[in-house]
Nucleic acid binder design. Structure first.
Lengths: 199, 199
DNA sequence: CGAGTCATTGAAATAAGTCAAACTGGGTGG
DNA sequence: CCACCCAGTTTGACTTATTTCAATGACTCG
């Protein structure tokens, strides 16, 4: 707080809504189902959405730069999915464009959502290295920061060991930049305080 | 024809448009991307949606009884996906409920779409028999008519041989009704005339 | 420094894919 | 009307990519 003024870790404590850009580090939780909140636009990074039911979680979607998450909050102010950062993310609050006709806009979101579904499904067929490369393509080619192997595994429907071996292979083939390795960075113990807000 | 009056096998030959209910037989095409059309409500049966690009097709979604397909036509009157009947289907034209606020309704569709995505993704992880059983659960337990093995395979991300073997297994375990076998019925040569309309 | 998570590696087990061949049954055309 | 055709299905033998299980190393964070 002292070194980073205006930092807020709890929703509802927004101090200076001048620029409410929100930074979430790799592995951090962005929102949880049932919690109150608003939609966000992803400025940077990539996000996984999970459907959580009885502490079982199932992959529900991916969001990359430009996408809007939490649209369902427009309905009743509640998140339906858990969102967590695959890599470090930058978000900004998003408000519906009142200029555009609401129904039209909603249809656009629907179409975008369905298009994303096609890509997601494709991440679960084919060989391991195909799946992983396809994922990287979705997240933006040549990522500087790599998602956790566990995340990659859960998204592609592989196990983490397979992902690890495949990544090693990809490195050997020069398909990944030398410096891009997943080994670094342990995800901070997730205590719902991973979000860092700048005012 | 003698025993089943009013049966028509070619579109364009609608005789009595009193009820525009549309019947499509297993394997039949319901709509194709780019074509003009309207939304339909699925009354019976189940449908696969495919994203077609350069005669490559990728599974894009599933629709079961109660679902509405072709919502995107509200935007520009054009279908985005190819829809074909996994099993024989009954459809009726669907019109947006003007009573409900459009944006609200659109959000509901979006939420439904995302929920369906979760289920679809689940069809591509786990063992073959788990995937297939999960699919049947989605399509409504204990289907009387079975989708083509090829469809089951493409939806679950397996190959048709694996599906065939697994089905045999399921039969042996009594998990499928004796009379429910996929072997019957060859899908009619698909010349865009598979729709059957009743007046 | 320990605790815990994440990543890596190896060896063995196996479920699923591949390739090939035969069967099936309903359309279709002669 | 019937033989043929063909998509769909079934089955077998073989291959292999991936999972599983287990153990170790690496790095963060408290």
């Amino acid at each position: 707080m002292a070194t980073k003024p205006h930092r807020i870790t709890r929703p509802g404590q927004i101090t200076h809504p001048v620029s409410a850009t929100r930074y979430v580090r790799r592995g951090g939780e962005i929102c949880r189902p049932g919690a109150a909140g608003r939609p966000w636009r992803v400025l940077q990074g990539s996000i996984r959405l999970d459907h959580v039911i009885d502490d079982e979680h199932a992959l529900a979607g991916l969001a990359v730069a430009g996408d809007i998450i939490g649209l369902e909050t427009l309905l009743d102010n509640r998140y339906r999915y858990q969102a967590s950062a695959l890599v470090s993310c930058q978000l900004e609050p998003w408000y519906p464009d009142t200029v555009e006709e609401p129904a039209q806009a909603s249809l656009q979101w629907l179409i975008a959502s369905q298009a994303r579904t096609v890509d997601m499904l494709a991440l679960r067929i084919g060989r391991a290295h195909e799946r992983i490369c396809r994922l990287f393509a979705m997240l933006g080619h040549m990522p500087v920061e790599l998602p956790r192997l566990r995340d990659i595994a859960e998204i592609t429907g592989l196990v983490k060991e397979t992902v690890s071996r495949t990544m090693t292979e990809l490195h050997a083939q020069g398909l990944l930049r030398q410096d891009v390795r997943p080994r670094q960075s342990r995800v901070r113990r997730c205590s719902s305080h991973d979000a860092i807000m700048y005012a």
